[in-house]
Write a protein that binds this DNA or RNA. Structure first.
Lengths: 200, 200
DNA sequence: AGTTCACTGAAACGACTGTTTCAGTGAACT
DNA sequence: AGTTCACTGAAACAGTCGTTTCAGTGAACT
């Protein structure tokens, strides 16, 4: 309990990275120290030593997943001037639908729903914070007068809902053509409506 | 292993109902026979006897949740003639946003994502089957020429995605006004587009 | 009365859980 | 050379898990 290295060492991030890859494959729900340690060439003893407890390890894994998520937000948000709400949403969707991102998105969905059921512990606040993160990104692509209105919040909420709803469908059915057409239809309607009001 | 009652007895549905209420409160991820049995006034022995195994119990619980889901579908689908796609979606949303349905929807979300990660076992196919169920309901509210086209499938997929995306947001943030406005905005755009094409 | 049979309490089984205790590594620093 | 200290293997701890074994209930049926 008293033993816990203050700063993340080299070995620690190595193991965290290996554990992260393991979690992407097997999920977090049934995560167990002994199988995990065996798979990444470590031992339960070391994991407990480095992360304090299993809860600490799970928190570190969720934080690691969040780093990936924020990296996407950063690459889409800071790369140049605001691109317009629907354009940004399209770029996000291109990233979401990539088959190689599916393990990460499954893990994300698992952490999301788990934090709904078990609001305390390692999962606390995951769902709420991920919603606000993405909403903030979308807000950055809305023009200034609209951005701060309740109407503006509703529009970016709708865009986020379309993205997440389509993602859920895609993860469950894998039916890329249908889901792709659905999102494109949805964004097209929003785009039409916005251009009719002279909003980017 | 050999003992398993063939037909569901009275006692069995009583216990299943009690276990269902327990699962709505505590979720399925950490479900354990001993605490569950203690809470519903039974014993692990009896649960194993009646449901064959814990896996059988979980399957029964998921089937029970599915009964609730199908009941909603039935009440919205068979009640009169097709009401139009967006009207049907609005009615579904009125049901989804009810605070008293939140435990059921949390359980539903948990089973959904879990079946994405662990495609075998008791959860198998839950996500995919729930998608097709709801899509079929929405299809019943589309007019006949459109219903069987790829465009029609895309539109009802978009409607379902909007509903699910808004539901996820609502479960995480509880921000009813914003989410409500988002869904209304989304459905309004679809409605406008459809009436412009003479589709109900 | 005797048998059958659905049902159940108590206790144990082996496997697994996260965590701790103890005993060491081996490299870095004084 | 001696000490410190980050790190780790082996084993055990107490607890929980799903499941099984055994020994019964008590009502229904022959």
């Amino acid at each position: 309990m008293s033993e816990e290295p203050p700063s993340p060492s080299v070995r620690q991030v190595e193991l965290l990275e290996a554990a992260y890859r393991y979690a992407l494959e097997h999920g977090l729900a049934d995560l167990s120290l002994r199988p995990l340690a065996a798979a990444i060439g470590s031992s339960p003893r070391v994991l407990i030593y480095l992360f304090g407890s299993k809860d600490g390890l799970v928190k570190a894994l969720l934080a690691r997943a969040r780093v990936d998520e924020l990296a996407v937000l950063g690459s889409l948000g800071e790369a140049g001037p605001p691109a317009g709400l629907t354009t940004a949403a399209e770029q996000i969707w291109l990233w979401l639908r990539e088959p190689r991102h599916r393990p990460l998105l499954r893990l994300w969905a698992e952490a999301y729903t788990r934090s709904l059921i078990e609001p305390d512990g390692a999962w606390a606040g995951f769902a709420a914070s991920t919603v606000t993160d993405w909403l903030a990104l979308l807000a950055a692509h809305q023009p200034q007068p609209e951005r701060d209105t309740a109407q503006g919040a509703a529009v970016r909420t709708a865009v986020l809902a379309a993205l997440r709803g389509c993602l859920l469908d895609l993860l469950a059915t894998g039916d890329r053509d249908r889901v792709d057409a659905a999102l494109r239809h949805q964004l097209g309607l929003i785009e039409n409506d916005r251009s009719a009001r002279d909003l980017p």
